[in-house]
Amino acid sequence: MRTPRAAAPPALRRKRRRELATTAGFLSPWLIGFAVFFAYPLIATVYFSFTHYDGFNAPTPVGLKNYVYVLTEYPFFWQAVRNTVWLVVAMVALRTVFGIGIGMLITKIKSGAGFFRTAFYLPYLAPPVAATIGFAFLLNPGTGPVDHILGRLGLPQPGWFTDPSWSKPSLVLLSLWGIGDLMVIFMAALLDVPAEQYEAASLDGANWWHRWRYVTYPNISPIIMFAVVTGVIQTLQYYTQAIIAGQVASGIAGNAGQQFEPGYPNGSTWTVPQLVYNIGFQRFDYGSACVVSLLLFVVAMGCTALLMRRRSGLMAED
């Protein structure tokens, strides 16, 4: 990367210095942002994680105490980790498969393509709080239309968000409703598959499976990789939908005099990001909250590194 400097004549050196100054000028907003909103808080998070800090008394160093507390004593940690892993696996897998499916469908649709695209895309745009409250109502066992219709059809009526074994599947359902982003990505990728390859395949008498296996899949696999890794990272951050669904379904509004702890029902909707909120902003144990933050950071950065290695195109120069 580095050009040998010694050989450069003074005029060229001056030019290069000027170029560097221009670059720094263009980059300056981000350089400041990087230092103040990324580097500093990360270092501070590490520092706080080794202290006892309640927001009133100055932080006091406590060594690894917070780590021990979070990993072995704090009641919701492992439950949240298990839930998050469950959600990552289920959501990413189902969303990817469903996204490819919808993408393929939309490329095959000839009449009214605009209508279908809009219908599939629209739910993705619904603000998460609104979409979650809406879903919690639709799936509400006592008053919602879904169980009402299922009952009419003589089908079982699950408790959805109020039943610990159905609450996470309900969240997955909500995430499938918002498939729009993946649909568009896969749609574009599928349209970029060279048609000649399909023609060649059908000349060879390939059936649908062969066409998928030897033409479609190899062509879109980088996009699948991208969708999976970004999906994992997004699901690691899963927060708003889980906390709102729990709150709406619990009937505990978190109003004055009613403490709402996330996770309803039976801790089945705890996710790791909610732990940071619970420990930091409900229990005001900033040190232990930072421990959870750091663990989340390590996992998220691991995934990011994987993405950057496998999709070096993300950083391609031209």
């Binding site: 509400n140 066992p141 006592g142 009526q157 408790g159 109020t162 039943d163 009937g251």
Partner: peptide
């Protein structure tokens, strides 16, 4: 629990 829980959601 199930039946009561469902009834509660209509309150």
């Amino acid at each position: 629990y199930q039946k009561l829980s469902k009834y509660r959601s209509s309150f």
